[in-house]
Design a binder for these strands. Sequence first.
DNA 1: AACCTTTCGCAACCTTTGGTTGCACTCAAC
DNA 2: GTTGAGTGCAACCAAAGGTTGCGAAAGGTT
Lengths: 116, 116
Amino acid sequence: MSAVVDDELWSAIGDPIRRTMIDLLLSDGPGTATSLSRRLPVTRQAVSKHLAVLDRVGLIHAEPAGRERHYQVDEAQLARAVAQLSAVGSTWDARLRRIKRIAETIERHHTSNQGG
Amino acid sequence: MSAVVDDELWSAIGDPIRRTMIDLLLSDGPGTATSLSRRLPVTRQAVSKHLAVLDRVGLIHAEPAGRERHYQVDEAQLARAVAQLSAVGSTWDARLRRIKRIAETIERHHTSNQGG
DNA sequence: AACCTTTCGCAACCTTTGGTTGCACTCAAC
DNA sequence: GTTGAGTGCAACCAAAGGTTGCGAAAGGTT
């Protein structure tokens, strides 16, 4: 019954640092562990681990460039992630609406039964 | 530059178990730690801890009923969470589209410069 | 009332994950 | 070839998710 989501993908974007990293890669273009760490409140090594996580689920991929490793967002995979976000969102949204409708129905019953 | 999201709220719904719990509470109505644990792959105590987390960020609230504690979703707060999901989603979506447009522009340049 | 069952909360403990520091290696530039 | 920036690996720490074990409270049964 629960929305069919890829837990790996979700937990990858569930971390606030990783979300910010994706944000940075999208807004500033490809970057390295070092360049990203300069714009984040954690060390290069921590960033490196996060990059490994994102790489493992395919949200980003690395391109060796000399002594550097340039990471960039995999657009298709991120699009999938976005789709899952909106899927879960709309599922909950629909349920909330249904609940609200039922609540209103009950409210009406009360009103008609007990005369306000 | 990153989407303005409530990290507490995000990390609350970032956990797959907690997401499923919200799902269950929405689809089956209010439940207890015990009732939820029967439908989840973790123990009652683990569920109890998750309920505490969700309660702390206001996504659910408890109602003592005899020896039981009935938890139910706070609709307004969940609506806020859904809004944040879609906010992040659409931010990324917009950036992806922009990148795609730029990529196509570059593609066109190549085509016109190198003549195919 | 006494008893048994269910549900809960607390505490101890283990494992994974995110974070840090330290160090050795590589590649580029001088 | 030396120096400097960027990487990767390893050890170590703290917090989070999970488990078991136990004792307490509420409800049903006899």
